[in-house]
Lab assay of single mutants.
Amino acid sequence: NKEKKVFISLVGSRGLGCSISSGPIQKPGIFISHVKPGSLSAEVGLEIGDQIVEVNGVDFSNLDHKEAVNVLKSSRSLTISIVAAAGRE
């Protein structure tokens, strides 16, 4: 599966507009579980089932849900590497 990078700058009070969840035991990782229509996440093409592999240089493969949320909230400017639809297989 091809990795792609998206860049998101949080402007004003707009949030990311997506929710994440941890994958099942047999498929660990952090996946996008919800994308709000019209949100920044939707605008850059994030979709439900995409796996987040890295954010701002932080490897997401071994993070738990709480740590992942903290990384996503730690910066107003995010570089997110995803594997599209990895969670839909």
Rank of each mutant, 00 (worst) to 15 (best):
F60T: 05
I32D: 02
G17S: 01
A42D: 15
S21V: 12
L46A: 02
K2P: 06
H34M: 08
A42M: 08
I52A: 00
G38S: 07
G87W: 07
A85D: 10
I30W: 10
V35P: 01
F60L: 06
G12C: 06
G38C: 07
I82D: 04
K66R: 14
S39V: 01
R76V: 09
E89Y: 08
K5V: 08
G29Y: 04
S74P: 15
K2I: 12
K5I: 08
P24K: 08
K4M: 05
S77I: 05
N62S: 12
F60P: 04
I30G: 03
V6Y: 15
T79H: 14
K66Q: 12
V44F: 10
S39F: 02
R88D: 13
V44C: 13
G23R: 06
L72F: 02
E54L: 03
Q51H: 06
G17K: 00
P24N: 10
D50A: 02
G29M: 06
F60N: 02
R76M: 08
I30E: 04
V83Q: 10
K27Y: 08
S13K: 15
D50V: 02
L78A: 05
A85M: 08
I48W: 04
A86W: 07
P24C: 11
K27H: 14
K4Q: 05
S77C: 11
C18G: 00
S21N: 10
G15L: 06
N70D: 15
I32R: 02
R88H: 14
K27S: 10
S39N: 00
A42W: 12
V35D: 00
I82N: 04
G23F: 04
G15I: 07
S22V: 11
F7K: 13
A84P: 15
E54Y: 05
G49S: 01
E89N: 12
R76D: 14
I48G: 05
D64G: 08
L46H: 03
S22C: 13
P28C: 06
S41V: 06
E54G: 10
I48V: 15
K36Y: 09
G38R: 09
G17C: 05
I32P: 01
S9P: 15
G29E: 03
F31A: 00
S33A: 09
Q51I: 02
Q51W: 01
K66S: 13
I30T: 06
L46C: 05
I48D: 10
G49A: 03
L46N: 05
S13T: 14
A42C: 07
G57D: 08
Q51M: 06
E89C: 11
I20R: 00
D59I: 06
I82H: 05
G23T: 06
I80K: 05
A86M: 10
G17T: 01
V69D: 10
L46Y: 00
S81I: 09
V6Q: 05
A42I: 01
P28E: 06
I30R: 02
Q51T: 01
V35Q: 03
S81M: 08
S81L: 07
S81Q: 09
S41R: 00
S77N: 15
I20W: 02
L16W: 02
S19V: 07
K4I: 04
I82R: 07
G12S: 05
E89F: 12
V55S: 03
G57V: 14
D50Q: 06
E54Q: 13
I82Y: 15
I30P: 01
S21W: 06
K27A: 09
N56K: 05
N70Y: 15
R76P: 12
L10V: 03
K2S: 08
I30V: 07
G38T: 04
I32T: 01
K66V: 11
S39C: 00
I52V: 07
A86S: 14
C18Y: 03
F7Q: 00
A86T: 14
S41D: 02
S39W: 04
I52Q: 00
E54V: 03
T79Q: 13
G87C: 14
E89G: 12
E3D: 11
F31N: 02
H34P: 01
S33L: 02
A85V: 08
K27P: 05
A86H: 13
R14H: 10
K36F: 10
C18S: 02
K5M: 06
P28T: 07
K5C: 06
G15H: 10
F60E: 01
N56D: 14
D50F: 00
G15E: 14
K36W: 07
G57S: 15
S9Y: 07
L40E: 07
F60R: 02
L78Q: 03
D59K: 12
K2V: 04
S21I: 15
G87Q: 12
S21D: 09
G45W: 00
V83P: 04
L78H: 03
E54P: 00
G38I: 04
K2C: 08
G49I: 01
A84H: 12
I32C: 03
